[in-house]
Design a protein around this nucleic acid. Sequence first.
DNA 1: TTGTAAGCGTTATCAC
DNA 2: GTGATAACGCTTACAA
Lengths: 348, 348
Amino acid sequence: MDKKAKEPREVSVREVAARAGVSLGTVSNTLNRPHMVSPATRARVEQAVLDLGFVRNESARQLKSGRSRMLAYVMLDATNPFFTDVAQGIELAAERADLALVICNSDGRESREQTHLELLRQQRVHGILITPVDPDGDYLHEVSRSTPLVIVDRTSKAHSFCSVAVDDVLGGRLALEHLIDRGHSKVAFVGGPASIGQVADRLEGARQAWSQAGLPPADLTWMTSPALSVVAGTAAGQRLAGMSARRRPTAAFCANDLLALGLLQQSIASGLRVPDDLGIVGYDDIEFAAAAAVPLTSVRQPRRKLGDKAAELVMLEASELNHQHEHIMFVPELVARASTLGSSYSYR
Amino acid sequence: MDKKAKEPREVSVREVAARAGVSLGTVSNTLNRPHMVSPATRARVEQAVLDLGFVRNESARQLKSGRSRMLAYVMLDATNPFFTDVAQGIELAAERADLALVICNSDGRESREQTHLELLRQQRVHGILITPVDPDGDYLHEVSRSTPLVIVDRTSKAHSFCSVAVDDVLGGRLALEHLIDRGHSKVAFVGGPASIGQVADRLEGARQAWSQAGLPPADLTWMTSPALSVVAGTAAGQRLAGMSARRRPTAAFCANDLLALGLLQQSIASGLRVPDDLGIVGYDDIEFAAAAAVPLTSVRQPRRKLGDKAAELVMLEASELNHQHEHIMFVPELVARASTLGSSYSYR
DNA sequence: TTGTAAGCGTTATCAC
DNA sequence: GTGATAACGCTTACAA
């Protein structure tokens, strides 16, 4: 019944040639330059291909040609909608260029990231896009020596590759300026770990806005979280709800929307009113932000554009002989919703 | 400054051998069986590798070994949290087996799916996991002849591969039984397109529960949607809100949570109270379901387990000589929240 | 312990 | 228009 299982050996061009009664070269020509083969021969070869279930061996092709037609995106967190949106932007660009995109997930772990990078360069992929755990790790440079590589959603101090990012410091400023506008004078920044560049930059921006408004540094507290996830946000919410009303900040700026959604959920569950008892600003403006219990004010980034531009750059680098690295910086935008404005503005 | 760009040619074992003053075989041994090489020679080779920036050519290795150590998951929709959770389950299993996982996104389009599958089989990947657009397409069988392939989140009528799924008919029943319990006698099923198996099965289950309760078939209406996305849900919400109160169903069962979240958001925006004017049940119980404007009642599926089991099966198939295809069916579970229970139950 | 040589499947370069 | 032959870079017997 089951014809598959372990075939003794895979079908090769050699066998196709034998079956069709032609030589190797003719089979190859039929496959790659069909116009150079007489219709009759071509038909015989094509029939043989079908009969034998021949599948081209990409390894062998690559071995000859040197490079694969594969683009790779190494994601920081596949479950974060922000990154899947970026990936979508990349996909569209890759499709236009007739390259296949494969996605790898580092899941925030440097070891997994390295494993993936190593495999990808060994595969001689056309190019690598990556949102790295650490954009200044030596490893990235090493990889970029052999494979075009573009950093996505980060910039690197060491400029040995292109990068595409959104100005996170500005984003942090926008968030805090908004909160200050709304009259908050005691705010918590929620996010961590500090090693994540996005977190550090957004905090930096927040602090800039804070000091520019002449507010006392001590009133902008930093509540660290172990990760940028919903559960981490929930935990932060518990800590916040546990504070006495006088000690508790009147607003929280979360380093991303997952945190903010968790925080929001937990705050409401703990009986806090949002935004009356606690204003909340998120970051990324993922699709779910607007559908939250209280629609979330958030800092929006041009996600698709980020991916699209990154893909464009990596393909450029792959094709140019003397490539100049570029560093693109997009500008974020604040989207104000009920979680800071109040219920009258609930739905845009 | 920029030492990279187009190197004349990539470094090969041959050059490493020359540099280290040894032969090809010794380099290969150093790389693959270091214990068979004297420490001194090994050191020289390793130094040469570093000096020259040698990167193994995976294509050549695969050409010899026949198969790559790569597992692939072809996703139906990379932006749907359900599938990214499944992917996470797969990743854990792949990591345990020391296989790299790459993810491809078909984005619901059969053409993209085929392109990816074709490339993957040409790459001779270790195995393919796929949530297909159409589990009964001829193409899948074709691929499964040459590469171990497991269907994820679907079963196929044609049993030429393993599959891992959750009983969607049962899930549909659970949802409707719950709504019937809550006293609803006029319900809309929201979902589409009908070609998606998940949609058809969940509707089927809903209808079973409906007729078993002795309710008139006409009171379970089917509101089709062009996709299983938040925006499609929003559109459905508009249609629903546009109905007169007497014509409008008192509850909606959505084919997935994205639809349900969109529907929920739009319903509230249109002034409907949930669940008083409209009860809502979603499907998948994604992380965001509980954090929604009104926490969402949903049918939960064992997502991680789904991925984990699928990966296990595909690796089994790859290693067994005479493989018996298995069809695993997991059981879903209803999680009742405020969107059907009312505000007193708001947070679990 | 190290070196030599054959071969994996494909493509390109030639003669025919 | 077609057929032999030599690479591509690596692994693995087997010989030294």
